[in-house]
Amino acid sequence: MDIKAYIESGILELYVAGQLSEQENQEVYELTQKHPEILQEVIAIETALTQLSASASPHATDFNTIKNKISSNPDVIELKPKTTHWVAYTGWAASVLLALGLLWTLNTKNTLEEDIQTVTLEKQVLETQIEDARNNLANTKDLLNAIRAKGILAVPLDGQGNFDASYAKVYWNKGNNTIYLDAQGLPDAPKGKVWQVWSLTLNPLTPTSLGTIDNFNTDDNKIFAIVNENESQAFGITLEPEGGSKTPTMEQLYTLGVVNTAP
């Protein structure tokens, strides 16, 4: 290698000025290690340039300022990492606390949401109950008004024969051809059987079916409005097979009541 030509190329001046690539720097460095002439040249260039730039400095600066800033005191240096750790630990602790807090908040939020759902459901149920109660009240008022209306005939139906304990009442509104049958005193119809209501004329004894009460067992107040266009003289209720009978089965006559036509 022609060391002189290498030096003359000017690469070493650029090397000192920091103008070379990483790879070139590496190459120059290796050559300075191999060839003392090159190293000497580099040092000479560096010395010239440092002196030149030092001449551009308006005044000298004191090292003590820096010394104080970097806190060369070993005790202080020892402290530094500790402080950093403390800050780091605090940071981590804070993050963990934050994470826990967030989880707790999330959990509370979920619980509250569930509570709200439950309360909303309960509210709906209560609203339905209130609605039902209102409807019931309205129905009961209607019923009461119907029974209390002027010109209503009340016909008590007493228990017959073996069914002494049974009773019923008929409120007959002749004005609109309707009877209200209060059948609270009758037991539930057994399976396969149904209550059938009869209008009777007495002389001669002629039964006319007013129909069966198919929803008897499920009805709450056991009051049924039934159309009756007959000139009834009595009302009777019998237990008949499902679907009803054409003529009443007298053995199964539970209650019977005569219309009191006298004013």
Binding site: S53, A54, A56, S57, A60, T61, I66
Partner: peptide, 22 residues
Amino acid sequence: DINAFEKLYAMYSNSIHGVVYN
């Protein structure tokens, strides 16, 4: 080594100062 730092500082601080000031 703070003493080594001080020596290097003495060697180069004026040059660096000149470059920065420029």
